[in-house]
Design a protein around this nucleic acid. Structure first.
Lengths: 253, 253
DNA sequence: GAGTGGTCTAGACCACCTT
DNA sequence: AGGTGGTCTAGACCACTCC
């Protein structure tokens, strides 16, 4: 029952109460909550009020609702770690690319689909690649799957000048991936920079990544530089935050 | 006006339409949307339906609503970049700690409040610090502000054994921060590892960080190791995802 | 005081899942 | 068939902001 005189909105009281019961383990992961109609009775509020409370918990990522079945406490997803070691030259020598290397190491059946197109660099691409706006660039738009499930979206951009005549403009970039092709054509890589952020997904991303409500995405923009400091590739990645964790390691000095 | 025969729920049609107008710039950042009652008329739906549409956009972080004023397109927040260089030994020599160094470099007036307590290591802390569960640890619970606004929460844990008799058990750890004190007592740091993830904030975090709805938090767990590979500190940080971006750089080999 | 968003009700009907 | 969540209505009153 909610306290009508407290000044706290009824749906917040219901949400808080359910949240406490979930975090206390009273409703265990995977377990079903009482039905909305039952909650209506037990808290003495209308159904829209109960639904607003449940909506809050869904937006927080605490529960998921399944049409015709019920509302369930969301069990924590198993988290994949991605470490920077996946980009070592050594790893490239044995594999097709970073993602396939990663998946193979974990027993997934990986698959990717790639669309290649050519564009003029927009302001952001121009800034990261240190080229003029409007310069022709090669864009590789990839969807990566593990056991059929989409796990990562990635858009890679390179100055067209560097990719002409290489397998980077093909669907299959060959052993070692695009980075190996760049090095073969004389652009030996010197360093990587990754910019990591997070935000809520667009509806489109939510569909593609099959995200539950209340699950943000991690965005990673990686820029690859040659040994002389010239940027040669930028790669925008989008990952489901409930399935990925990124790890970085560096010496203290 | 919504299409009743399309099978697409009315509130989704309204949300999609508004979303398009926002991303197309028809409603510019900071600009006010039509009032809910106006939207009721223009789309021919009831007010709860309009509100559900607006709720969607709010959960996506596209708009904020202000009681008594209106609904506004959320302007992008200015993003602070945090790079791993902030942890260099050289930077420590000139400053009190990583956060103060960061803020000072940017013209903020930084302030922190610290609560120190002693606990027994839980399973997670024990795993990261390579100690037995139940071992006594020192916990430094910090709230960091820039110009009075909370921007970061951080909980640092170290084996008590390493902090006894040092300024790490004081509110003010002194010049160079806790890492400098560790090095002074003979625990020269060898490397750092950061694990980066994202999730929706707890209501508590949302309040403390003054997060708008639809803004996730970035979580960073940093573990500091000595030169012989012994973990000496773990630091759990929580940052507002609309205000921070993390940068990591490493050589190609 | 007029306009705004915030909360809440008491229903109704639909779509989906299970038995 | 019966239970579940999903959608929607037509109101009502409140709290806040601005003029």
């Amino acid at each position: 029952m909610v306290d009508r005189r407290s000044g706290v909105p009824a749906f917040r009281q219901v949400a808080s109460d359910l949240r406490e019961k979930i975090t206390a383990g009273e409703y265990a992961p995977g377990e079903q909550l009482p039905s909305e109609r039952e909650l209506v009775d037990s808290y003495g509020v209308s159904r829209p009020t109960v639904r607003e409370a449940v909506n809050m918990l869904r937006a927080e990522g605490l529960v998921t609702s399944e049409h015709g079945r019920g509302v369930f406490v969301r069990p924590p997803a198993s988290i994949q770690r991605m470490s920077r070691a996946r980009l070592s030259r050594e790893a490239r020598e044995r594999n097709r690319g970073a993602f396939l290397a990663d998946a193979a190491a974990r027993g997934f059946t990986p698959s990717t689909s790639v669309k290649i197109r050519f564009e003029q660099a927009d302001q952001r691409a121009a800034a990261h690649l240190a080229i003029d706006e409007g310069t022709e660039i090669t864009v590789r738009d990839r969807v990566m799957r593990a056991d059929g499930l989409v796990v990562q979206l990635a858009v890679s951009r390179l100055p067209r000048e560097l990719t002409r005549g290489t397998a980077i403009e093909e669907v299959d970039t060959g052993a070692g991936g695009a980075y190996a092709r760049l090095e073969e054509s004389g652009h030996r890589l010197g360093s990587f920079v990754e910019h990591v952020g997070a935000r809520m997904p667009t509806p489109d991303e939510a569909t593609q990544l099959q995200l539950a409500e209340g699950v943000p995405v991690i965005t990673v923009t990686r820029v690859a530089y040659t040994e002389d400091g010239t940027p040669v590739e930028m790669n925008d990645m989008v990952l489901a935050a409930d399935r990925y964790e990124l790890s970085y390691e560096w010496p203290a000095d």
